[in-house]
Every structure is written in structure tokens, then in C-alpha cells.
Amino acid sequence: MKALAARRHHRAAPVVLLLLALLVTGGVYAVLAPSPAQAETASTADIETGKKLFQANCATCHGPNAEGTAEAPSLVGVGAAAVDFQVSTGRMPMQMNGPQAMAKPPQMDEEQTAALAAYVASLGAGPAIPTDEQVDPALGDPAHGMALFRTNCSMCHNAVGAGGALSEGKWAPPLTDVSPRNIYQAMLTGPQSMPVFNDANITPEDKRDIIAFLDEQRDGSAGGISLGSLGPVSEGLWAWVVGLGLLIAGAVWIGAKSS
């Protein structure tokens, strides 16, 4: 230590200290800072593949450089999350025109989806694909998730996410089979008629709570067959079909059993 103490008045000491401070600050920042929009460093090769896929499958509507046309919006700045949501659920490339794009078996495999996402993300900063930890239902609080779902989501998606109708043939799809990653992405990017719930509105932890609540619904209903969780209409229908059906069949049988 003596040697170090002796040199503290050295001419170069301030410069060395400044460099050390910058290094530490930079290092701490690199460790603690929120991951940038493009979390996984996309290779130029991915972006190149993505661009080719885009031009073959998407450019007709979204324009050759994703700048948008009269038919479809610009994709500059929508981020990788939007692309991953739309393509991995099969909504894009769109199968047919209609009130809204329908989910179908995905047309692109995972690699192609990743390449497309990388390409679109390279056009402008946007929301990134969430990490597995961000969407893990086991880490969320379903009770808090339900309170959030009730006030933000249930008016379109039904109380437990069984889906619901919107105007003019549009609809809020059922969330029963949607993957946690896609649920997160939908909240983040607001696809089609859905509003955007950004991180200031519903924090990433809140989003995970919502996912935990929806995941809890998949365990089934405590009371038996859930009847689609559609509420009193399906209950009434089954009361007539099963209840009255069995009773009348029984009555015909008892009535026919003549003494």
C-alpha cells in the first residue's frame, strides 16, 4: 500500500482514477441497466434472412420496406414482440380479408419467425420479445392478476378469458389456449382491436400476475364441467338440454310403463 500511497500525488493519478471510475460506472451500467429493445443480438445474417422472408411474404401489403400501404400499417418501430405475436399465432401472413385477422396454424417455423422479428426490429426500436422469466405464471400472483383482469380485460375477453364479441364482426379471442409469451406480447403491442397496455400502464410484474390468473383458469372448474365458462346462457341451454331432456325422457318412460 505504501507504494500506492506514495504515488497518489503522481501527475497521472487523476487520469487513472477517472478511467477507473468510468470503467466501474460502465460495468455497473452494463450489469444493471434494463436490456435494450433488441435483447438478443440479432446477427446480420438473421436480419438478411428476415428481409428476404419479409419481401416474399409480407411486402405485398406492408410495402417493400415495411413502410406501410393503404391496406396495411407501417411496421417501422413495432418491435420484435409484435412480429413474434402476429406470426407465431398464425395471424400473419393474413389468410383472408375480414373484420380481423384470424389465428391459424403458424405458417413460419420458429427460426423464420425469429428472423422476421429481427428484421422488423432492425427497422426501428420497439418492444422486445419478453424473457421466459417475465411470462412465468408460477412467479405471478393470481389474486392480483384477477383484480387487474377484471378492471382491464374482462369487458372484452369475458371474466375468465373465454372470449367475447366486439362490434361489426370483430371479437376478443378466448385466452384459454394462448401461450403466456403471446399473452404478454398482446398486452405490450395491442394487436388489432386491442389497446396497448404499456409498461407504465400495467407493469411487467402486473402482466405476469395476469398471466398467472389466466393460467389458474386452465386447471378446470371446482364444480365439474366448466361448460365453456360462458356464464348463464350456456347454463340455461344445458338446463334445458340435459335437465329437461332427461326429465322428459324419464316421464315418457314412466308414462309408458302402464300398470
Binding site: T151, M155, C156, A159, G164, S221, G223, I225, S229
Partner: peptide, 23 residues
């Protein structure tokens, strides 16, 4: 065998929210 009116799906009453499929 058939569940009916799972009130915990709807949650405790609060005048503000309305779920889709409220009938």
C-alpha cells in the same frame, strides 16, 4: 358434474367492471 355460476370467476361486486358475456 356440471359447474354453475362460479361466482369466484366474476369476483366480488364493484360497480365499475362489467365482463363480456354478462347475462
Amino acid at each position: 358434474t356440471m359447474s354453475i355460476n362460479n361466482v369466484w370467476n366474476y369476483g366480488p361486486y364493484d360497480p365499475s367492471p362489467v365482463g363480456a358475456g354478462a347475462q
